[in-house]
Design a protein around this nucleic acid. Structure first.
Lengths: 337, 337
DNA sequence: CCCGTTTATGCAATCGGTTGCAATTTGATT
DNA sequence: AATCAAATTGCAACCGATTGCATAAACGGG
């Protein structure tokens, strides 16, 4: 019934239709240059043979790829795998938005071992633009490349004077609000749990510290360095709880995943949340709503963030200049505090 | 210091080096056809101008893209976003393995509205091969395309007679083992919570049912249809618990995320886990280890699974025939049962 | 010093499309 | 019927690489 021969390029289709390749090309593109009935005929023919023009050839000619790179630098993680649902949420949102704009998503997880990692991606010519999720500890490299490559936006922290265009929540303020909340709930000894090397976390720590100092709790400032992945964060918190003479009254976890680990470690030690220890997380991921007890957290509006990232990126690709966006974080007071 | 002019193709580099483009091309490829010192000279020149040959042009010429498509069909989800950490874990593993093999990862999240969705991806010429994560409710489409396109592997359930090559755990057996475990723990009224439309879940249900029947608990078989995402699963479980006269003694959640939702819903109703109700999940995700109490689950070895997927895919791309792989699931007995 | 190999390089076709411009056809107008 | 503008279509160059084959240079042996 259907035609047996497989058409593999517009040349063959052109021959079949008795026209030139240019006509086929334009017809498939629905160009008004081609008479309506010719267009219809060729499109029908293409459908019949389910022929789809080769994307690579097209891309080469028109000098764009139709793909946006999404890069997750893992400079801080020794562990090979990310299990942080944060990335999935972000990725899902980005994938949706990009598909909606007719672009594909090229995912790269990079463990930066040499400082050319970003240049390689940029110069590969595989993508029209780049979204980097989290500066990790690579701010310098990112800034260097941003200087010469415009089509680049970053989810993460904002630092005065940075070259690259970023979208992210106000981490300092978020840290301040989170800590203030715990203080309001009556906590005095509050421990910050996170990883300093990561820009956003160090900003959250800064906010934490400011709130503590402001409330005259400067001497109670304490910090536990914990990895981002739950597998490693949990034993670290457990060890910490085992070693301290007196457990803290409040824990400010730099991410929801760390918060979850904390909840579990506390439970292991027979400490009740929020009666004995109050816990607050950061991110506002779905997962934080499904812990027992439900985790109080600082919500970053990721949907909005992803929207901003895409929007800014496309504007930059169109040649516009863009400023960074800082989103106001929001306290979600739930059961753990 | 560094050269100011930007080299944009091998032609320009050739002119600079005083050789032909073919020589440049071969030199950059480190071909033995070119004299060692010519090679060195050209490579140095390329480095100096940090020139990297255009990938698209290369791909067009050699007829491969160096990219593998990873597709997540969401035929079953009305909701736009996936928050299931399962995908992230899988994606992370795949991204690592593919990078290791020198390939890029093109991510597509598809909500199949017309039955050509897969053909479009295959015929786009953007990828050398395709990994589909989960059949969703699209087994028919996948099978149809698999018939004509070899470079395709699927993570998901195995059905006798399927055309496509799949990798996944033995869901029927997993369901059987999970249910048997709950029965051994003294449960008689066990409810299965999951979504039948998804192949893997219906297989898990099948195993559940078999175990129940085998233990003479046929009349206690009960099922709650719940969505995969925690946002919607939780209220569904809550409603269920509110409506039943007598809560079940055991809950077999078809995924860890549903299991988490169940834990929380039970906690809301003041039911103790595992004292009042025992819960078992499925997947063995990291996250399941960090719930309170820690979730008993059926572990699927995703690392192994991802390895198999990649391995099979590359063998298929090399022209080999491959059989589907079924992985034995393993009980992780933790605190919730 | 000549000739036959090896070794090193260049020529030009090719991958599969897109697009500026020229050429042809159509149609309207006088 | 002749003229001219508008509507269609085709020609051929191009995007930036790779690669089979021809050619030129270097080398070794007699």
């Amino acid at each position: 019934m259907t035609a047996p021969i497989r058409i593999k390029n517009i040349g063959e289709l052109a021959k079949l239709a008795g026209v030139s390749t240019s006509t086929v090309s334009r017809a498939l593109d629905d160009s008004p240059l081609i008479a309506q009935k010719t267009r219809d005929r060729i499109q029908a023919l293409a459908r019949e043979h389910d022929f789809r023009p080769n994307v690579m050839a097209r891309n080469l000619r028109i000098q764009r790829t139709g793909a946006i790179g999404v890069v997750i630098p893992l400079g801080h993680e020794t562990s090979q795998h990310i299990s942080d649902p944060f990335f999935m949420t972000m990725l899902g949102l980005l994938a949706d938005a990009l598909t909606g704009r007719g672009h594909d998503l090229m995912l790269s997880r990079v463990i930066p071992s040499e400082d050319q990692w970003l240049d390689k991606i940029v110069d590969s010519g595989r993508v029209d633009g780049l979204i980097i999720i989290g500066q990790s500890d690579q701010s310098a490299t990112i800034d260097r490349v941003a200087k010469r490559y415009r089509n680049l936006v970053v989810w993460g922290g904002y630092t005065k004077g940075q070259v690259h265009c970023s979208v992210g929540s106000d981490n300092v303020r978020g840290g301040y609000l989170a800590t203030s909340h715990l203080i309001e709930q009556g906590c005095e000894r509050i421990t910050f749990v996170g990883d300093h090397r990561i820009l956003e976390m160090s900003q959250r720590y800064e906010g934490y510290r400011a709130a503590m100092v402001e409330s005259g709790l400067k001497h109670n400032v304490s910090e536990l360095t914990a990895h981002l992945v739950a597998e490693t964060a949990h034993p670290e918190i457990t060890r910490f709880l085992g070693e301290t003479a007196q457990p803290p009254q409040g824990i400010f976890a730099a991410t929801d995943v760390i918060g979850m680990s904390a909840l579990r470690a506390l439970s292991d030690f027979g400490l009740a949340v929020p009666a004995d220890v109050k816990v607050i997380g950061y991110d506002g991921l779905t997962i934080s709503e499904h812990t027992v007890p439900r985790l109080t957290t600082m919500k970053q509006d990721l949907a909005k963030g992803a929207g901003n990232l895409i929007d800014l990126l496309f504007r930059r690709m169109a040649g516009e200049e863009t400023d960074s966006v800082v989103i106001e974080p929001e306290l979600l007071h739930r059961m753990s505090s």
